[in-house]
Design a binder for these strands. Sequence first.
DNA 1: GTCTATAACAGGATAGAC
DNA 2: GTCTATCCTGTTATAGAC
Lengths: 213, 213
Amino acid sequence: MASEAERVAAADESFEGVSPDAARRLLLGAVEAFAERGFHATTTRDIAGRAGMSPAALYIHYKTKEELLFQISKVGHERSVSVLAEAAEAGGSDAERLARAVRAFVRWHAEHHTTGRVVQYELAALGAEHYEEIVALRRRSEEILRGVLESGDASGEFEIADIRGTTLAVMSLCIDVARWYSPSGRRTPDEIGTLYADLVLRMVAPQGDARVP
Amino acid sequence: MASEAERVAAADESFEGVSPDAARRLLLGAVEAFAERGFHATTTRDIAGRAGMSPAALYIHYKTKEELLFQISKVGHERSVSVLAEAAEAGGSDAERLARAVRAFVRWHAEHHTTGRVVQYELAALGAEHYEEIVALRRRSEEILRGVLESGDASGEFEIADIRGTTLAVMSLCIDVARWYSPSGRRTPDEIGTLYADLVLRMVAPQGDARVP
DNA sequence: GTCTATAACAGGATAGAC
DNA sequence: GTCTATCCTGTTATAGAC
């Protein structure tokens, strides 16, 4: 259904490293299909078709449909974690680090909303061991964000009543972008990122003390 | 798999009005199953089994599996919209209305996370007409929330740069609770609601003006 | 209204030719 | 490595007895 232009836009450079070419095309087809219909509603025939192959050719590169999902989840999570880590670890004040981290993480989820949707909403379809591996990656991103919040709270730059809860809320806000974002919507990924960074800074900014009595 | 206690906890009073009894039991079984495995991964055998019936009995009460999903989505959305509307329309300052609305909406998504997950993440499995009907309900909740933000922004009680964007962010924050909430987690639905109401008030609170120069 | 049995078919995965 | 053909399992939905 997607036009060639949309296909190219959706074609995720995250998977550029994957070779051989056929395996990469299958991965891209699977991301597209899983995002549109969900894992269980997607047939291996559909995936193979999008990659321009017969159903059987899929099994040369991947043992099962689930393995395809696992590869997508793994690469997707690794990418988003590294985007977040890079933004959070660059220098500046804690507010600058937080704003940069939120903006980058949101942008990733908007720009790669196709992958993002698969990665976030099809976790339950993974096998037990694969699931554990992915959960570990997810914990990493939570820890990175919590680190920034803790640092800012300790220095007094932020004022946070419940650090774990606020971390969860911020993660949740960023991640959910993948669910509702549409390239045909009003806002660019960068605009959403900027707006969200501002909202998050407000969430953690010191309150009353600085006000006139 | 769920213990009887969990089944009862998950058994959603939202569906109390549904009759006959068999139809209600099927609906409850379907909510449970869809939330655990997703719509497409759920078999009619499973749903019927949870309701203590044979697969065939399902078709006396519902024409298709999709109709079951539609009923769940409809009742679920109607409930969450009415919870939100009630909280937003009660009296008080705009800040009070906003805090009450967020708290109630979040609580609903935590307490009914089973239904919430189905309602939020299986939209794509609905047929075209059913989909339109549900989307209309979703717009209602967005409008209710936006109304409160606009009112507070106009009166100066809030200070919001981008009302549509902020509405979207707040909705997203509340809704995503259904994805990650677990009854075995650290926080009660009410605690999460209270925390989130506080975070949202901070998002919209007037900034600089009130501070010491 | 509910059951047992079954029709009708779609999906994941494999065998073997090229 | 890829294709065509196919196996086998499990699915939705219906028919007909109780």
